[in-house]
Design a protein around this nucleic acid. Structure first.
Lengths: 231, 231
DNA sequence: GGTTGTGAACGGATTCACAGCG
DNA sequence: CGCTGTGAATCCGTTCACAACC
C-alpha cells in the first residue's frame, strides 16, 4: 500500500501551481529542469513524479504547459466539483471561507456550521452560518464531499465524528489534534465502518511553528530546499 | 545531512501535545504503546523517535509524563522565548494572531505588519498594525526571531525578502508559493548570504485541500493512519 | 543535440527482534 | 516479567545513468 509516495502528491500540487503561473505569463513550454528549479527540487524528482501517472512530455522538447497542466488537474481530481462544508466559523473558519483560490478548481462552500449563538445566523460569503444540529439534515438534502474542521481542539474529535456521520469522504483538519476513528467500546468493528475510507488531511499551524523553532536551533538537520545546481 | 528524519520532528510535536493532554487529565505515566495509539503511529516509531534525542524512560515502567514533556520541550527549543512578527494582517493574519496556543510556549507576537491603508493602524491583540516600510526600523530596535508570512501569493516572495533583510532566522509561510533564495542576477553568491541558514516552513491550506481531493479519489494510496494493533 | 522516461543503485526511514535493565 | 532502547534487517523513496525518442 502506497506505491506512490505521499510526498510526490504534494509536489504535484506545487508543479500545478507553477504551471498556472507560467500560463498566466503566456509561457507555453517548460522542462523538467525548469519546473525543478521553480519548485525547489531536482529534475530527476520531477520526471519521476510525473512518470507515476503517465507520459506527458516530448523527448528533446520538454512539456507543453497547457497539456501538462490539464493532465495534472485530471490526476489530482480537480476537474470535478467538490462540495465542501466548513465546521467552525470563528476567525479561522471565516479566513478559510474567504481565502481566494479555493474556487479555482470547483471547490464550492455549500454549508457553514458552528455552535456559538454569536456566530450562527451570520452571513459569510452569501451563506448563512447554520447550527451544527442542522448538519445532518443539511447533508441528507445536499451532496457534501469534504468537511473542513476549524473548531477548537477539544471539539475537534466530536465534530469530526459528526462529519463522518454526515457522510463526508474526507476531512481537512485544522485543529492541533490527531483525529481518530472511534475505538468501539463494546462491540468489535461496528461504528468504524463509517470511518472506513474517510481521508484525513491535517493543516496544523501550531505544529509548523514548533518545527520552525526546532530547525532554527538545529539548521544542519534541515534538508536544504535545493536551489543552485538542479541536476 | 538529515540524520534525524524530518518526519520524526513532526511526530515529536504530536507526542508533546499528547503529553500536555495527559497532564491536563492528571495522568502521570505513559508508555510507548500508549503514546503510539494516541498519535496514530507504531510503538517502535515512538521509541525510535525518542531515542534520537536521549533516554527518557524507565525499562519495565514506561515514561513519566512531566519528565518526558519537559525533555521534549527542551529538544524542540520551546523552553525559550520566540519573538514573532506577522506580515500580512488580512483575515488570515488576524486569525493567526488570535489563535490560542501560540503563547503556551513563549511565542510572542511583537509586531504586526501590512501595506493596506485600511489595515495599518488597526489594533489587533494590543498591538497596532504597522506599515511594511517600518519593518526594517522595527527590527533594528527589537529582536525578532521568526516571521509569519500571511500575504497574498504574489506578494510572498518580496515580503519574504524583507523578512530576511530584517534578519529573521525563520519564516512560516502560509502563502501557496515556493519561497526561493534570490538567484543573484549578476554577481555570483552575494545576496544569498543573508538567506544562508534561514529556515522556511510551509503551512499551505490550498495544497492540503488538493491532496485531500486526490486521496478521496485514490484511497488505497493513502497510508492508513494506524489505529488497531499498534505493534 | 536535447530532453524525457525508467530500470537499477543508493541511501534514508521504518520495522523488527531482542538485549538491557528496572 | 515488562517495557525501553537499539543494532540489524527491511522497505520505500530518491538519485542516478542511460536508453528511447523527437
Amino acid at each position: 500500500m502506497a506505491e506512490i509516495p505521499t510526498a510526490a502528491i504534494s509536489r504535484l500540487v506545487t508543479y500545478l501551481r507553477i504551471l498556472e503561473q507560467l500560463e498566466a505569463q503566456d509561457i507555453s513550454r517548460t522542462s523538467s529542469s525548469d519546473l525543478a528549479e521553480r519548485a525547489g527540487v531536482s529534475a530527476f524528482q520531477v520526471r519521476k513524479d510525473l512518470a507515476y501517472f503517465g507520459r506527458f512530455g516530448t523527448r528533446g522538447m520538454g512539456y507543453t504547459v497547457p497539456i501538462l497542466k490539464r493532465e495534472l488537474v485530471r490526476v489530482l481530481g480537480l476537474n470535478q466539483t467538490w462540495n465542501v462544508v466548513i465546521v467552525g466559523m470563528g476567525r479561522l473558519g471565516q479566513a478559510i471561507a474567504n481565502y481566494p483560490g479555493a474556487s479555482d478548481y470547483q471547490f464550492q462552500y455549500v454549508g457553514l456550521f458552528d455552535v456559538s449563538p454569536a456566530i450562527v445566523g451570520r452571513q459569510v460569503r452569501n451563506l448563512t452560518v447554520q447550527h451544527m444540529d442542522d448538519l445532518r439534515a443539511f447533508t441528507s438534502h445536499n451532496r457534501v464531499d469534504m468537511g473542513f474542521l476549524a473548531v477548537p481542539p477539544d471539539r475537534a474529535q466530536d465534530a469530526a465524528q459528526m462529519l463522518v456521520d454526515a457522510g463526508v469522504r474526507g476531512i481537512l483538519n485544522f485543529a492541533p489534534v490527531v483525529i481518530q476513528p472511534p475505538v468501539e467500546a463494546t462491540v468489535q468493528q461496528e461504528i468504524s465502518d463509517e470511518w472506513r475510507g474517510v481521508i484525513i488531511e491535517n493543516v496544523d499551524f501550531l505544529a509548523g511553528m514548533k518545527r520552525l523553532a526546532f530547525y532554527i536551533l538545529n539548521p544542519h538537520l534541515k534538508d536544504a530546499p535545493m536551489t543552485e545546481d538542479t541536476e
